[in-house]
Amino acid sequence: MKKILVIEDEPAVRSNLLKLLKAEGFDAIGAENGLVGVQLAREHEPDLIICDIMMPDFDGYSVLTQLRQDQMTAIIPFIFLTAKTEREDLRQGMQLGADDYLTKPFTRAELLGAIATRLKKQEAVTLLQGKIQELQQLNIQKDDLLARASHELRTPLANMKLIIQMLEIISNEEQQQQYRALLESECIRELELVNNILDLHRLGSEKNSISPETLILQYWFPTLIEPFKPGIDQRQQILKIDCPPDIPPLISDRLCLEQILIELIGNACKYTPQFGKISISIYVDNSTKINCLNSIISFKITNQAEILNTELPRIFDKFYRIPNADIWNQGGSGLGLYLVQSLVKKIGGNLQVQSTQGWTTFTVQLPIQTSV
């Protein structure tokens, strides 16, 4: 309900205006003079003000001047009521910032028409201001991302430069092998960071661009997990996969879902110790609803490692990495989980995380759809 403040010193005129506005569905407030009107405008922050010009002690021009100097009331639409029709009087009001004039006597249709026009224009102004603020915030975020990305990119490059210098002066083969392994690790970290920054940019520029496909999970998922098996075997981790043969087809964006699961499975491998357990299960959950759909498919990735309660709220922040958690020294960009959260939202799913008693579980829930 739109709120309108009427500032009018004549009781009969003020009463009639308030009755008319309330009958039209407005929340109408009355002020008997200019000083009270300024006070009520600051207290209630109405959507529109209707004000008489000729009032004793504190006239309409003074009211408008006071309100336009206050940041809280400066942009409230302001309509003058006046018996004056001289050009100089109209000009004075417009120069002070009035939005419209109604000359007494006026009709009901003229009053409601002026109100409708001003409220419509104010909605457009508010929408434009919101867009401007959104663009300003995006620009701040972009600058922050650029600064932080530049810092993050510089670190692996500096490490690689140092390692190359050490390789030039070290003749011991065993030490050279160690430095080569470190060099490879830093190269992988740099490449991952660059790829994630590109993914982040693409995600921001293609917010609503998805390409749904029908995925037969029994055949698709094993191909996704296969690249992780050599590393799991090398670290002697224990992997258990549960993907029932009767799981129904899933319609989703394949590339987005692949990126989500690759990141979550990769993290499970990275943070699970030697001989630790990793469990991946896919199942239908009829007890949860997403987008009013009764059935969902859940991807649950559980690994034998715990995230401290102090760290858990920050794991989806850009560039955040849990201190001393990467026991295999694989490195990371700190963007992976932020991208996972954004991609899950993009394809209409839910993402949950739990970490307790030495175990961490990420669950991706996606609605089962019937057609592409």
Rank of each mutant, 00 (worst) to 15 (best):
M160S: 01
T223W: 09
L217P: 07
A158L: 14
L239M: 09
N172I: 00
L135S: 05
E168C: 08
E174A: 07
L200P: 00
N195I: 03
V125I: 15
L119M: 11
I225G: 04
Y219Q: 14
R148S: 08
L146Y: 08
T117H: 13
K142E: 01
T223K: 11
R180N: 09
P156V: 03
L157I: 12
D143S: 05
L217D: 08
Q165F: 04
R148K: 13
E134D: 06
K240F: 03
D233R: 11
S171Y: 03
S150G: 06
L193K: 08
I225T: 10
L215V: 14
K161D: 14
R202N: 00
K142W: 06
I170L: 06
E184W: 12
I210E: 09
A124P: 03
S211H: 15
E123K: 13
F221N: 03
C187V: 15
E184V: 15
Q122A: 05
E206H: 05
L215T: 09
E226T: 09
G231C: 05
K207C: 01
I188W: 12
I169V: 13
I232P: 10
Q133T: 05
Q133K: 08
T126P: 00
W220N: 05
E192C: 05
L182A: 15
G204V: 00
N196S: 03
T214K: 11
A181P: 01
L127M: 12
N195M: 07
I225Q: 13
I163N: 05
E186Y: 12
I225W: 10
L145G: 00
P227K: 10
A147G: 00
T223V: 03
S150M: 05
S209P: 02
K161M: 08
S211V: 06
L135N: 04
I164H: 10
L239I: 02
H151I: 10
P212H: 04
Q234T: 12
I232F: 07
K161I: 11
Q236M: 06
G130T: 05
L182I: 10
N208M: 04
Q133C: 01
